[in-house]
Design a binder for these strands. Structure first.
Lengths: 232, 232, 232, 232
DNA sequence: CATGAATGAGGGTTCATTCAT
DNA sequence: TATGAATGAACCCTCATTCAT
């Protein structure tokens, strides 16, 4: 009986979390408008009125999700600075990990939610920018700059590499979520190898051409003192 | 009275077209669910009941739009085979044209519509695949194959190039449509040069190394005196 | 068929009127909050949605009623200036008519509505003041002033007479509406004679005492040039 | 612990009282329907569930209030028979006291509550009749009869005087409560002198004509040098 | 063909009331 | 006794869709 009490209390404390989870799931599956408050409550195992005990409106649910930055439901790029190893390998590791994490999880659904609801929830633009794009940009650009500094990469605009590597991942997530198995033969989107090949392709493009090495290195310094917004 | 009859008849014939235009516009602006039948009719200049005279339901409107392949509202890649000139230039021309056409027009809205409604309207998967992805893939891959055959490009999987060049465009369109001016300083998405630099970056990666050096497009030299933030 | 068409169209034009009537009836019977939109519509012979075709909200219904000043549902004091006859008789006629009209009709319900909803609908205070209190005050005070001028009444503050004659009527209306037959033996409120006796009682108080006549008349002039707000 | 127990027990005994007070306050402020059970409990400093521990329903709260005759919240006319002094003065004292007590306190709110809820709570009709109307009637009529007996008043139906003096007070209370400051310039309702002048006016009507002239209360002389708008 | 009017079904939200502790 | 949590029953309002003209 005590245990049951404890269990119940624990459940009660967890209600908001469970409701948010249920809401996120249904928002992802059906979109914000089509997700019925009653269904969200039901999925969380409570009645519709209970939902309104914890959140003032359906909009509030989404705002809470945004404020919580979709709490760990989206795989974030690892920020630990692993200084060891070649920059090529670092880039490989970070992007492969991130890509497969995103492809496995609910990222596609969240991205879709962001795209469809940003009109009504400006907070989503912030989320998108600060939680998705910027961290990825920073991490990737950081490695690129490091690679340039160490002479492993040609001197290129780091943003270009971000553009080349991150954007395709985003589309692939969206595509995977939206199309699911509708277009099973779409090699462009679904093949996991394609991305790794793409990664190698970009890495190759980053590698200094043997004879050009001499002129590449000096330029790298210009990336150390970022005069613009997009530095690491 | 005859004239009026004529005028009326002409208008009447045009009704479905006007309704489809109105529907597409509102679907793009507000999404399928949030676009009210009454608003669609109003935008087409007719009454709500008239809409149902021409289409059996709101879903029918979208199905008709899909069946019509969104009638020319989306810029299609030009398929004329221009055999003249370097493959580098061909690729540049095709992709630049396509990208700017998509960024100008309503492509972002249509892409979003596809993503959000494909689970209710399987026809959208076909549209997406056959009208957007495949033509672009075919055109770009064709040029790549040609370039490889002519020794202008290194031998690579053509899909890799498609992946590298087409996917970023799609995301940029979506981003532009959804975020609009919410994230005005997002260099990764909004900068128009970034894509052309990205294009050059990929083209460089395609160029065979030792002998093709001299051919490297003039643009590549600009990498040394980048006057803008996104230079290489 | 034509006739039926006509009839129908006439009915359609009349919908707002019918809805307002139904709304007023239910507001009077149950109060604003307890009157269900569906019941209002049903009483008007239409569906709930039709109500919202003509009025944007339930509040709008009441606002429309207020704006229409409860359109003739409340008996207004007759404003024709009947100069013939003794002022005593004039006062008798006007007040008796008004009182019985109010007691018969829905005045009690409207007064109650005003009292209960004036918090949420400030327009009701205006209605109360401009449509109920002021006209009655003006009419009664006008007669009193006339009577004073003609030497038929003692010089008294006309507002005092208004106070003495109008206020009891208001309470009697409210009482009649609210209590109905709950307190059938309440001679103070329900007896119609009581009011006419009260009227006579006040009239008597207005009549100059025979010997005091001389000093009464001169004072009357001070009521001719109303220096204050409450003149006729 | 004992002390706490004592304190608690004392508080617990007081719970119903506190709840009733809170309920009455909110019923007066917002009306029965708009007063939420939760707010009542909160105002009493307990939780919503505790309210239902003491009262079976929200209706029960009002019934208890009615049964308790709104416990001293409404000013009752003093029933001590003060036989000393002129009947004019007695009437003046009783009515002035009662009126100002009612205007100060919550009488208006309670009257409104009675009017709006009597159809759901027949007990309110009894309250109204036995606690408000009848005591006032009895007291005032008693004085009138005494005055007639002593030759101070003309022989009139005592109810007539009750009607003339009590009814206006009721409306003024209602008006004050409902309109508050919405119609600040309403001299008919808000002016405090108006009632006392009205009282004098009625007293004058009660005074026997020829012989009683000299007795006319000193206040009556003030009618000749009215310094305010509402003089006679 | 065109439309003004009408509606049924459904969703968001509130609140009096109950239950488990 | 006291309460935090939960809920069922309504109610307001919307909108895709139909009907009568």
């Amino acid at each position: 009986m005590l245990e049951r009490g404890d269990a119940c209390r624990r459940r009660k404390q967890a209600r908001p979390r469970e409701l948010l989870d249920a809401a996120l799931g249904l928002f992802i599956e059906k979109g914000f408008a089509a997700a019925r408050a009653e269904d969200i409550a039901a999925r969380a195992g409570v009645s519709k009125a209970t939902l309104y005990l914890h959140f003032r409106s359906k909009e509030d649910l989404l705002k809470a999700l945004i404020a919580e930055r979709f709490a760990s439901r989206i795989a974030t790029v690892s920020h630990e600075t692993t200084d060891a190893g070649a920059s090529h390998d670092l880039l490989r590791e970070v992007l492969t990990t991130w890509q497969s994490a995103l492809m496995e999880g609910h990222a596609g659904g969240i991205f879709k939610l962001v795209l469809t609801e940003v009109h009504n929830f400006p907070g989503l633009a912030d989320f998108w920018s600060h939680e998705v794009v910027e961290p990825a940009r920073r991490r990737v650009a950081g490695i690129v700059v490091r690679g340039i500094d160490r002479g492993e990469f040609r001197p290129v605009d780091p943003d270009l590499v971000v553009h080349a590597l991150v954007l395709p991942i985003l589309i692939m997530c969206l595509h995977r979520h939206a199309m699911g198995s509708s277009v099973p033969d779409d090699a462009l989107m679904n093949a996991p190898d394609l991305f790794s090949h793409h990664l190698e392709f970009v890495l190759e493009g980053l590698t200094p051409h043997p004879p050009a090495r001499a002129l590449a290195t000096p330029a790298s310094s210009s990336y150390e003192c970022g005069e613009s917004r997009s530095r690491v």
